[in-house]
């Protein structure tokens, strides 16, 4: 498709005095509140976006703490109960020699959530002040954050499957711990945080820089 402006300067709907719909791409005159093609609410830029991103991110961070402190799994073997946290589960897997699976769990439950917190915070900060990273690179980062977030839910599903399967009365039983709840809530909050982010803001900051 050809850009309505002249290369290399990309013309945006905002710069042209128009408003684009983020759902269906239809272009509207300013002042229109609801898209006539798809019915979504429209705004040139979502001004409350960054605030909501911070609020959900903070909430996600707060519930991530108990998720790591409290037990994720309670395993009872022959009457003896042991509890394991997220990190403890990874260590157990490594002791059993399942390095691949340990890596998956470690990535999904520790590396991804932590780098996601950092990445969202960085993106939110980057639209509020100037940063060195180019808009193109930040957009890529945003896409990765958006794509990867839901995969953190793996550990919650693992706990559910183990708990439903391993119920062998006295011999062995596995029950979910309270950390499973706070972990699931934390993943959900950070997903909402990432979705609240208006990715068009990434490019606005870049443009202001070009215009001096």
């Amino acid at each position: 498709m050809e850009n309505a402006g002249h290369a290399p300067q990309i013309l945006t709907a905002k710069a042209a005095g128009l408003v684009g719909c983020v759902q269906c791409g239809r272009v509207h005159r300013p002042g229109v509140m609801v898209c006539d093609r798809c019915g979504a609410a429209i705004a040139s830029r979502d001004t409350t976006s960054v605030q909501r991103v911070w609020a959900w991110l903070f909430a996600g961070l707060v519930v991530y703490v108990p998720a790591n402190i409290y037990p994720m799994l309670r395993t009872t073997v022959l009457g003896k109960t042991s509890e394991s946290t997220i990190f403890g589960g990874v260590v157990d897997l490594m002791h059993h020699g399942s390095y691949g699976i340990a890596a998956i769990v470690f990535f999904a439950s520790i590396i991804i959530p932590c780098s996601k917190f950092a990445a969202i915070a960085f993106l939110a900060l980057s639209v509020q002040r100037k940063v060195r990273m180019s808009a193109g690179a930040r957009h890529k980062l945003y896409e990765v954050v958006e794509f990867v977030g839901r995969w953190s839910m793996i550990d919650v599903f693992v706990v559910a499957i183990l708990a439903s399967l391993v119920q062998l009365d006295f011999a062995a039983s596995i029950n979910p711990g309270i950390a499973a709840v706070s972990f699931a809530v934390s993943v959900a909050f950070t997903m909402i945080s990432a979705e609240s982010f208006d990715s068009r803001l990434i490019w606005d900051a870049d443009e202001d820089e070009h215009h001096g």
């Binding site: 309505a4 945006t12 905002k14 128009l18 719909c21 239809r26 990715s199 490019w203």
Partner: peptide, 25 residues
């Protein structure tokens, strides 16, 4: 700036707001 075409002939990128002349793909 040149006169913009009618709104129906435009499309804005939902991710970054770049404005395009819509053509049939």
């Amino acid at each position: 700036m040149a006169q913009l075409p009618a709104l129906d002939e435009l499309i804005a990128c939902p991710s970054c707001d770049a404005l395009y002349l819509e053509r049939d793909v």
